[in-house]
C-alpha cells in the first residue's frame, strides 16, 4: 500500500470522520474502540500538521510474527500478516512488540451488528473473533482475491491511498494506475520508522494534503464513529 500524504486532508473538507477509517469500521465491523486504519495528526517541522492514515504496516520482518508463542500470526504468501483468532492465546506480546501500535485486543466480547449473524469467522474475515484475542488490519484479503481494492482505498475521496502489488510492480488508487517502483522513487516515498528494520509494506509520500487543498495550519479532524454500535448493543441485549 502507498499512502500519498499530499492528497490526505484527514477528510477536513468532507466535514466527516476520515472516510478510510469509517469505511473500514462499516464494512469490516471493526469493534469499538479499534481503528484498524487510524488517521494520526502529526506536527510539521515548519508549524501546522499533517495527517497520516496508518493501517497495519504488514512488515516483512514483522516483530509481531517473530514473538508469537503459538504461531497464531503469520505471513501469507502474498505478504500480508494475518491472525488466527482461534489459536491466539491472548498473551499480547505481539501488541507490545508492534512498534506502530497497530494491534488491538478484544478486552470484552467484541460488539457486532445483527447483519453479521451469518458471517462465518475466518482469519481473513475477523468478524466473530472471540474475546481475549488480538485483531488488526488485514488488507481485506477476500477483496484482494476477488481482484478488488480494500474498502479504505475505495472510500478515499482524494485518491490518497494506493493498492499495489510488488510482483506486478503496479499500484492503483481506484482512479489511475501507476508503476509502483517509479511512483515510490519519484515522490521520495518513505516508510514509518524505517530505521527499525521492520521493512513495512506500507509506503508514504510526504505531504500535508496540499493536493487536496488543505491548509496545514488548519488542525483537527472529526472524531471516529462506530455507526452500528447502538444496533450491536441492542442485538446483544436481545440475547444473540
Amino acid at each position: 500500500m502507498v499512502i500519498d500524504l499530499r492528497a490526505c486532508d484527514g477528510c477536513q473538507d468532507e466535514q466527516a470522520p476520515p472516510r478510510c477509517t469509517a469505511a473500514c469500521i462499516q464494512s469490516r465491523y471493526v469493534p469499538e474502540p479499534m481503528e484498524w486504519i487510524e488517521c494520526y495528526e502529526k506536527e510539521l517541522p515548519g508549524g501546522g500538521t499533517q495527517f497520516i492514515p496508518t493501517p497495519c504496516q504488514q512488515c516483512q520482518n514483522a516483530p509481531c510474527v517473530n514473538v508469537c508463542p503459538v504461531g497464531a500470526t503469520w505471513h501469507t504468501p502474498e505478504g500480508t500478516v494475518l491472525i488466527d483468532q482461534e489459536r491466539c492465546i491472548g498473551c499480547r506480546l505481539c501488541m507490545a512488540a508492534c512498534p506502530y501500535d497497530r494491534r488491538f485486543f478484544n478486552w470484552g466480547d467484541p460488539p457486532r451488528p445483527p447483519e453479521t449473524a451469518f458471517v462465518r469467522y475466518s482469519p481473513e474475515n475477523q468478524v466473530g473473533a472471540p474475546r481475549g484475542t488480538v485483531m488488526k488490519c488485514d488488507f481485506c484479503p477476500e477483496l484482494a482475491r476477488a481482484g478488488w481494492i480494500p474498502y479504505c482505498i475505495q472510500a478515499c475521496p482524494h485518491g490518497a491511498l494506493y493498492w499495489g502489488d510488488l510482483e506486478e510492480d503496479l499500484a492503483t488508487n481506484g482512479k489511475e494506475v501507476v508503476v509502483l517502483s517509479r511512483f515510490l522513487s519519484e515522490h521520495h516515498a518513505y516508510r514509518l520508522k524505517e530505521e527499525l528494520g521492520t521493512r513495512p509494506r506500507v509506503y508514504y509520500v510526504p505531504g500535508h494534503g496540499q493536493n487536496a487543498g488543505r491548509d496545514p495550519q488548519r488542525r483537527g479532524r472529526h472524531p471516529t464513529r462506530w455507526p452500528w454500535k447502538g444496533k450491536a448493543r441492542r442485538w446483544a441485549r436481545s440475547g444473540r
Binding site: G147, W148, D165, L170, V177, V178, R182
Partner: peptide, 14 residues
C-alpha cells in the same frame, strides 16, 4: 497500457 485491480489506464514507464 496496464490493468490492475479493476482499474486500467496508461502508466508512464519512464
Amino acid at each position: 497500457l496496464a490493468e490492475f485491480a479493476g482499474v486500467s489506464g496508461e502508466v508512464m514507464l519512464g
